[in-house]
Amino acid sequence: MAAVQTSGERALNKVAIVAVLLVTIIFLAPIYWIVSTSFKPRNLATTIPPTVMFEPTISPFVKLFTKRSQLRSPPSAEEYAAAPWWERVVFDGGEKIVRDGKGQVQWSGYPSRFLNSLIIAITSTVLAVGMGTFTAYGFSRFKVKGEADLLFFILSTRMLPAVVVAIPMFLMYRAVGLNDTHLGLIILYTAFNLSFSVWLMKGFMDEIPKEYEEAALVDGYTRMEAFFKIVLPEAATGIAATAVFCFITAWNEYAFALIMTNRRAQTAPPFIPSQVGSGLPDWTVIASGTFLFLLPVAIFTFLLRNHLLRGMSFGAIRK
């Protein structure tokens, strides 16, 4: 009886493994398609049957960073020979890089949007995690009147739909001139992430035994010294995990950025869709822009893998 069961179970296990592999492939296929499209020449991006095997080219990335125009006629032999390799791949695709009067290469809108995304996401993360750590410690160690209500208030500010908050913020920002500025988005993302950071950090703080600081207080440390020298180092993992979560949220945010920025402080998420336009989009360029944009998040996801559950449930579930 037992032997039959095990062989049955083993067969079931094999079926499950195959099914898991299948599910994994299906889930990763769209991401694979983004990566592979970002290395295709333009004419292979939209083919039937879809092109799977091809000679990879770097031209989508060159095109991503530069302004280009269609070639009316092929470039002359000497023009082609004089061009650097990265310009030749653009010539090969039937386009040329636009240069200004001094012969300088014209940049596309992408690099500045990417830089904006970095500046805004990093600054707002530092602010949200910094303030959140202090506040979480306050809630974790001291009696606060109406603590549950305050924590609910803090959380509820995060739960509102972006558009609901964006309407009055847009009017207020317009009044004080914060529309389309880095500072404007930084403040918004800090406010947005702060609630999350408080909730998550409170969980991490609760896990640090009170006895550590109490021992330090007995040794003559002040409460502040105990916080900075004993609690913060203990909380380092939690702070790092919270920071990565805040960074990813700010990095991916779309609605606020769409409403509050249009050029100067625009981040990558509203910029990339705006490039699809109404004509025939160059999907290889969109794919390369998407790929570069996703890369930091993919790396962080691997670094964060043991804390994902906790972060995604606002610290409710700890493993």
Binding site: T24, N252, T290, T301
Partner: peptide, 12 residues
């Protein structure tokens, strides 16, 4: 498998 949910909804 967890990768998709970490990515930007608008961009992906």
């Amino acid at each position: 498998l967890l990768l998709p949910m970490m990515l930007s909804m608008a961009v992906v």
